[in-house]
Amino acid sequence: MLSKRIIPCLDIKNGRTVKGVRFQELRDAGDPIELAEFYTKNGADELVFLDISASEEKRATLASLVEQIAAAINIPFTVGGGISSIQDVQSLLKNGADKVSINSAAIQNPELIKHLADKFGSQCIVVAIDAKQINGEWWVYSLGGKIKTSLNLYKWAQQVQQLGAGEILFTSMNHDGTKNGFANEALQQLSKKVSIPVIASGGAGTREHFLEVFQNGKADAALAASVFHFKEIDLPNLKSYLQENKITIR
């Protein structure tokens, strides 16, 4: 049986992880490689690296970091953050990334998804969608949640699938950072409306939230950052809890 995936997400700035990471096991909590190795050993099914640095040199730094990550870990990983061209994607894949995640660039130019899928294959193109529910309706936001667009979540998701996206990473801005659970209702709707895998993001606070996102949200994978970084949830413990509750987990 295909297992549900648990995906820790690491925010990267100028080659270092941001958000304080409190692990006694790590010598250098800001070192993304050491953190990636730690999560890999602890049973992470995949990793996502989100580059939030704004500097001009970010592309070169990121490509070299991707190469170091690929050399160090033996599970798949996705790289995202400001990716806007075929050249960006080519460089990241060539350096060892398994998938790239695009967001604002896809909103600005939806055809980019098609160009990337045609050139590199759908399997490595993740489209990240940040959305917020306002008066019952889900609106897509761009530029890291700063700009409201006129796109409806479900319609945009169907469009990106049609253009060739291989996966959707949906972050609910209403739930992100609350630690009150994932946007299960929207996730369930999303899963009905698209036929590509959906990664749920935003709202993880407890083990039960992960159980709910798989049972009720019908998500294929669940992503979280701080609950793992601050060790509020221990990966091996989470995975055995989900297994006990009849979720297919590696």
Binding site: L2, S3, R5, D45, G166, S195, I196, P197, D220, A221
Partner: peptide
């Protein structure tokens, strides 16, 4: 079901030296 088939799945009925020391239903 969802396509692509993406993620960890089990392999079984292993019969090749390629799978020496690999357990049935390994992910």
């Amino acid at each position: 079901s969802k396509i692509p088939h993406t993620g960890w799945n089990t392999i079984e009925k292993l019969r090749s030296p390629l799978f020496n020391s690999i357990q049935e239903k390994e992910y």
